[in-house]
Design a binder for these strands. Structure first.
Lengths: 265, 265
DNA sequence: CGCACTCTTGACTGATTTCAATTGGGGTGG
DNA sequence: CCACCCCAATTGAAATCAGTCAAGAGTGCG
């Protein structure tokens, strides 16, 4: 067991001040508020963990495994650069990539004890490995760490919810469009990378590689995006792409047949 | 690791003893370990929140709203009895139920600030409403609360992952089967309720009500389940239902054509 | 007793997958 | 430098799965 004393380093100088009238809870609340005030938004959870905890940096080659589904694991992995796919396999051998973890992402939070999925490098990737026990200790010790962990969990949950909606309620092409929007990130302009293969995209979106390919080229033909090669694209009309996702179907192309049928009936 | 546990409990009366050599972090670690030791597994996160925090109990009628998507919200809701559906609407008006929250579930954790989905009672439901700020304060103050919140978040994440795999990689009937297994819970025997409507199930599984109905009746005809009325069922052969989900396809019906083609080629 | 609702069932349509063939790019060896 | 191979991606045609439309059955309520 790590010695918890090192944890106290920063606070050790005047510990009893805390105790006189304020219980530790109040202090921690104050501390947390302070964290939030002075830049919780700027510093990502991963950055904060790096700053405050020891971790081992590793470089992994494309295709190399980081974790295996079902492993008992005492580690949390932060992605520094590159890209990691986290996936599970169904009984009949199909693969579902539940998330792509890019720079800043944390893998292994919120599963206490056992890995829920395998993780594999998509591209050359640099990671940092923390010990779960170290994170837990820091979690108890430091309000900033707590805020960061909670934020990371909340972000992951938000992300999952987006994916869930996408899989549950969007058509094939809408899923591809939504994925492109996600890939492009906040800034729409400029050329964007598609670092993963069509197979990876398909296994993430619950489609086949053919359908993904067709979707991409359909958007290309519709002038909504511009495909460079297979792994680069540019958003030409982002807002229309979003409209398409939201069911406007870009034009009335889908609505007309319905209307026609009504007039016939 | 277990060492400091007893110490902290007895020392709580005279706090400054702690400060001399142990900072608050150490105490909190110890406290948390203690929690875990004496029954974190038995006491659900919701039970613990109820025990330690003030909350307002309310009864809601079927169809009544608890939260609205996009609301700024300072509340966390615990479900005491009944059932709540949490959903979002797509741009073209379709509904996706991202989860059913039954007794013991917490709604509104891990979204700091804004509701990510609407929540509506499926059946007559009793809830308890906590203030987020109260939970946050308790979170900082009490290691048991921390453990509970983390556990609740981890459970929700696990649940989401199951749903994600279901939506991303299972066929319509497999989704229905997986949902039934989930509804039945750990004990397979006996009669189980289906508290929600077909429309609710369909909107959760990303299917139509017709497909859900057909799936259920197919399993009934296959003698894998026994449907009582529309809202009750019994698992007759749970293991075969699980096999079906995992792609064994119950028989070799799907594998044979493939084998035949191989012999031809 | 009829109305309104949910659920079931059938026939048909259409979207997506499956199968199959072709293209294109990158690396290797002649 | 070019031919070749290998793999990923694309494209087309047929097959399948799930959705849509439509009608009927069951249930509860006024």
């Amino acid at each position: 067991m790590t010695h918890p004393v090192q944890a106290s380093a920063s606070q050790r100088d005047n510990p009893c001040l805390q105790c006189e009238h304020l219980d530790s809870a109040l202090n921690l609340i104050a501390e947390r508020a302070q964290c939030a005030a002075k830049g919780a938004k700027e510093e990502t959870p991963l950055d904060r963990l790096r700053r405050m905890l020891p971790g081992v940096v590793r470089t992994v080659e494309p295709g190399q495994h980081l974790t295996l589904e079902g492993d008992a694991s005492d580690q949390v992995i932060g992605v520094l650069s590159g890209l990691v796919r986290c996936y599970r396999l169904t009984g009949d051998g199909r693969r579902h990539i539940c998330r792509f973890a890019g720079p800043g992402s944390l893998i292994g939070l919120g599963l206490l004890g056992v890995q829920r999925h395998s993780a594999e490098a998509v591209a050359a990737t640099q990671i940092i490995v923390f010990r779960m026990s170290a994170i837990e200790a820091a979690f108890e010790r430091d309000a900033c760490i707590r805020a960061s962990i909670l934020l990371a969990l909340a972000e992951e949950l938000t992300q999952r919810e987006r994916v869930q909606l996408r899989l549950g309620r969007l058509t094939a092409d809408q899923r591809v469009a939504d994925f492109l929007i996600e890939l492009a990130g906040p800034k729409n302009a400029g050329e964007h990378d598609i670092p993963m293969s069509r197979a990876d995209i398909a296994d993430h979106l619950g489609l086949t590689i053919e359908t993904v390919s067709r979707g991409l080229h359909r958007f290309d033909k519709m002038q909504l995006i511009k495909l460079g090669d297979a792994h680069h694209f540019r958003l030409l009309r982002p807002s229309e792409l979003v409209d398409f996702i939201e069911g406007d179907d870009d034009s009335s192309a889908r609505r007309l047949p319905h209307a026609q049928r009504e007039t016939k009936g």
